[in-house]
Design a protein around this nucleic acid. Sequence first.
DNA 1: TATTGGGAGA
Length: 525
Amino acid sequence: MPPRLKGKAQCRWSIRFRDKERGGRSNFELPSFLCICMLPPAAAAAIRATAGSPRAVRRVHARLLKEGLADLPSAPALLVSAYARSCLFPDARRVFDDAPRRDLHLYSALLAAVSRSPTPALALPLLRRMLSEDALRPDHFVLASLAIAASRLRSLRLGRQLHAHFVASPYSADDIVKSSLVDMYCNCGVPQDARKVFESIGVKNSVVWTALVSGYASNGCTGEAIDLFRSMPARGLFTWTALISGFVKAGNNTGAVGLFVEMRRDGVRIDDAFVLATVVGGAADLAALVLGRQLHGFAIRLGFLSSMIVGNALVDMYSKCSDIHSAREVFEGITVRDVISWTTILVGEAQHGRAEEVLALYDRMLLAGMKPNESCWSYLERAAAIDSMKREYGIKPGLQHYTCYLDLVSRPGYLSEAEELITTMPYEPDEAINCKWDSVAKVRKIMAEMEIRKEPGYSWIEAGKESRIFHAGEVPLDVGEEITGFLEELVSEMRKRGYVPDTSSVMHDLEEHEKEQHLFLRGWL
DNA sequence: TATTGGGAGA
């Protein structure tokens, strides 16, 4: 809640001060002539106190406009920041455009906003305008924001240029710009360069430690991440979360779970839900249902049951573990759902071939006032959704939407509908839909040239506390005979009942009998 | 007077 502003009519802004004569605190009402040239501190405080509440920002802005204070020095910059904190980026931009003067403060406020917005690339034209039209030189605040923009854009080129300017600037000793550069180099995939900047920082705070730990881990340098983490002077929940999340991003989910267990042993208090959401995400990637259930129980004990981000992660975990009913149950228990909650359950239901549930959820989603985004559309019913997509939301359905719909109708076995869709859609089918083996071969060749190796697909089962991994065609030595014997029995029984292998799903260009073998255990049957 | 770190879906 924003603070109640003192005074109701015209220009009555007051300052609260310690009153020595009367004891306690009193209000000093600012004379109106003072308000003509400076923004009353109470007004500045009111803008800052809007803290991420869109309604509060609009209310305070309206009042400033009404009382003629909105154009006073520093008011536009404060408003730009306040709007950006509420994610109202177009409003922030409008305040900037309407401001009577454009100074460095105003530019740095908008650049900070733009760098964090969904369109950080807009920082560049803004920078050009600042340099040419208004002849302003970037200060350390502007440099820090530009580093964030480069980081979000994953633009190493821009980041390096910026770093060069920074080194040559009068601000080259600023630790906060250096922190932003550490983050930028990490996000651009060169944690070694981030380390060099990190070492140049005199007094390193927890922010920059965390940035580098996270950067190492998420770029797959888990050893360096752990070493750095262990050498930290103090480790809090934030840094643990960063480390564990880095492990999950790098695909080292078992490592992430191990770290979570260690964090618990360390007695770190879990005050917020981020770390739980992260580690549940790791369980989802492993499709480890037992572990996921344990984490679910843990979330309940810690009181995060109705938490949206943990809920979203649990819904995803259960549906990836093929337990769509539990996924649905968790979804129904989330008190405040966002577009991610809806997308997660929708995709889960769709991947389980439950087209009717998808449609019902879609209706509920609209009723709940949720605006489906582009990726959500991919899983919606063709006729209803694609039509409504064009007419109501102005999104042109792309090939990927048709592909996803095809997935949706073909999984539960509506093959004639799938076929009809392929022939009527306004696109040429691509490799994902048809057998374009020459294109596949081309991609494989490029991958070989770039030394990109595809991780072979594998499955696994949990048996007691252990989980066993199976690669395609691989038979574990100790139970090999048992498995192949049983499979041979099954296949001969299937053939007796009229089974003919459907080799169309073998994604390799092989001879027919090789494809058949591929469908079972390569080289064994 | 603005600047730095962790999260869930596609």
